[in-house]
Design a protein around this nucleic acid. Structure first.
Ligand SMILES: [Zn+2]
Ligand SMILES: [Zn+2]
Ligand SMILES: [Zn+2]
Ligand SMILES: [Zn+2]
Lengths: 152, 152
DNA sequence: TCGATAATGGGACTCAGTATCATTTAGTCG
DNA sequence: CGACTAAATGATACTGAGTCCCATTATCGA
């Protein structure tokens, strides 16, 4: 578990308040927890982690918080097709934008960044008859460790 | 509903047979139906379409067929995060490889192809410490029609 | 401080997808 | 062509993520 990203927590709190929402303990817990994570987690993981720290939050509140944060663009949903979507905060400063490699053997989720990819996506978006708000990219394959095992 | 893609149906049948599976009526129906579709559909859509044509197939068999086809690389799963994954055939000849634009307003799924994107993805895959088998890209936004309505 | 209303949480509920298992059928071997 | 074995099928029960409902609690503006 990483240190709390105070900057993002403040931005999230401010942004939600600005969008006309009231503060609430449950949502504050979810925000804090998300700020500790470095990559996507499931709602259930958030629920369990908080419960384990004696900060139990109702499941419905967790989903509501995630939805609210996603709505103002502070969190993005990552769909990998296994059971359960995952969620991760989006960097306050525009950094932290990344995509994922998913190992089909061990299930490991590895984040990566690639400027060439982002450039291609931006060009593409500009040429489509579609107003693109966001994008999601997932590479499926095997991590080095699993690929080695398989070859053996 | 499009015409049956005989070529792909045959390839699928052959490929599955070669991988040591027996033929079966249910799977044949699923294969035929997939060959008629031009973009991703849900398992439920397949079930309903077949039932409507008096070719009812058990739900379990539909999922089994999709899994088998995906396993030999003839079908790809598309995860959009709404409820229900979607599936679509992958062109027998390497064509038909495409990705999707999803309209968050009307839910419309629009396929697109982009060479620049594919190139970027290939370069990227070559540089990662990961054996990449496939990739999935989804652009989220609003289609022209929904964007216009919103602006009004 | 008070009141309107949003946030919360427990629990019932939905529904895509899976597991089970009895039955049918494909493919093989005489 | 039959008989046999294992895979395919389908009805149904089941699972679990995510949603819905509603009584209760808490926020915050007046
Ligand atoms: Zn991530
Ligand atoms: Zn990106
Ligand atoms: Zn498609
Ligand atoms: Zn591609």
């Amino acid at each position: 578990m990483t240190r709390i990203d105070t900057e993002w927590v403040e931005k999230a709190t401010t942004e939600l308040h600005a969008s006309g929402r009231r503060a609430g303990g449950a949502r504050a817990e979810v925000i804090t927890q998300l700020s500790r994570e470095t990559c996507a987690v499931t709602a259930e993981q958030i629920e369990r982690t908080l419960a384990g720290a004696n900060r139990r939050v109702g499941r419905a509140s967790i989903y509501r918080a995630l939805e609210a944060l996603a709505h103002v663009g502070l969190v993005q949903r990552v769909d990998l097709g296994e059971s359960g979507s995952r969620w991760e905060r989006i960097g306050a400063n525009g950094h932290d934008h990344h995509h994922h490699l998913l190992c089909s053997a061990c299930g490991q989720l590895v984040p990566f960044e690639d400027d060439g990819l982002e450039t291609a996506l931006h060009h593409l978006a500009a040429n489509e008859d579609f107003t693109v708000d966001s994008h999601e990219v997932t590479l499926h394959g095997r991590c080095a460790s699993c690929a080695a095992k398989q070859a053996a």
